[in-house]
C-alpha cells in the first residue's frame, strides 16, 4: 500500500495524524539546507508506521516537527483536528503532555528521580496519573522491583523501558519514537520494541517510529522511507 493511498484512507477514516506539504530547511554554512521538501503523511488511530531513511534524510526532523519541538517552514501537521503548526509554545507543550508520548534514542530520564517517579512524571504533568495503569505498565515492562532505584542504577535496556513506560503512562493518542533501540544491543532492542508495540496497542496509541533498521521496521503495520526530502514508496 502506498503512503499516498494510506493518507487517503486515513482521510476517509478520520486520520489521527495528517501531515501535508511539510517543508523544513536548516541554515548551513553555504546557505539554506533543505531537509524536508513537501512531505505528506497520514496515520490512522491505533496503527503504526516505521519511518526509514539514511542518516541525515530528515526522519528525526519530521518526528520533532510532529512533536512540536521544532518549527516547520511551511505545510501543515494536524493531530486530532489540532493544527500543530499554528499552536503557540504553551499549546505545543499541552499537546505533548496530553496527546503525545515521546521516546528518544537517549533515554532522557531525570537522574534525580526514582524509576517510579520517572514513570509517573508525564502522567502527573498531564494530570492523568493512574496508579493502576502505572503499576500495570511497570509490571509488563519488568520494572516492578526497580521502582525505588535511580536511573543510573539500571541497565540501558531497563532505562529505555522506563522511557517507554513514561511515554505511555498518560495514555497518549500517538507515541513518537526516535530510534528507541539505537543505544541497545540487538536482543534487548528487540524486546524493548516488542513491549513498546504491545503496550501501545493496549493503550490504544498509534505509533510513529523512526528507525534505520529494516528488521525492526518490519514489526510495524506500515513502512515509509524518506529520501531527498520526500516520502518515498
Amino acid at each position: 500500500m502506498s503512503v499516498m493511498s494510506a493518507a487517503r484512507d486515513a482521510a476517509v477514516n478520520g486520520a489521527l495524524l495528517r501531515v501535508t506539504g511539510l517543508s523544513k530547511s536548516y541554515r548551513g554554512p553555504q546557505g539554506p539546507l533543505p531537509v524536508l521538501r513537501g512531505v505528506d503523511l497520514a496515520l490512522a488511530a491505533g496503527t503504526s508506521l516505521a519511518l526509514m531513511g539514511e542518516s541525515g534524510s530528515g526522519k528525526s526532523t519530521l518526528l520533532h516537527l510532529v512533536a512540536g519541538l521544532d518549527h516547520a517552514d511551511s505545510g501543515a501537521i494536524r493531530i486530532d483536528d489540532v493544527e500543530v503548526t499554528k499552536l503557540d509554545d504553551d499549546g505545543r507543550a499541552a499537546l505533548r503532555r496530553k496527546t503525545l508520548g515521546v521516546v528518544f534514542q537517549q533515554f532522557n530520564l531525570v537522574p534525580s528521580l526514582t524509576v517510579g517517579d520517572n514513570l509517573a512524571l508525564q502522567a502527573r504533568l498531564a494530570g492523568r496519573y493512574d496508579c493502576d495503569w502505572r503499576d500495570a505498565l511497570a509490571d509488563r515492562l519488568g520494572l516492578s522491583a526497580l521502582l525505588d532505584r535511580y536511573p543510573e542504577q539500571l541497565s540501558g535496556g531497563q532505562q529505555q523501558r522506563v522511557a517507554v513506560g513514561r511515554a505511555l503512562a498518560p495514555r497518549p493518542r500517538l507515541l513518537l519514537a526516535d530510534e528507541p533501540t539505537g543505544n541497545l544491543d540487538e536482543a534487548t532492542g528487540d524486546a524493548v520494541l516488542d513491549l513498546l508495540l504491545e503496550l501501545s496497542a493496549t493503550a490504544g496509541a498509534a505509533v510513529l517510529m523512526v528507525t534505520h533498521s529494516a528488521l525492526l521496521a518490519a514489526k510495524l503495520d506500515r513502512r515509509a522511507t524518506l529520501a531527498g526530502g520526500r516520502l518515498a514508496l
Binding site: 512533536a67 519541538l69 509554545d89 504553551d90 507543550a93 499541552a94 499537546l95 505533548r96 503532555r97 496530553k98 503525545l100 515521546v102 528518544f104 532522557n108 530520564l109 531525570v110 537522574p111 534525580s112 512524571l121 508525564q122 504533568l125 498531564a126 513514561r166 511515554a167
Partner: peptide
Amino acid sequence: LPIIRTLRAIGASLRA
C-alpha cells in the same frame, strides 16, 4: 539542562 530539556519534551510548558 538535560532535566529541563526532558521536561519540555514531555510537555511541561515554558511558563510552568
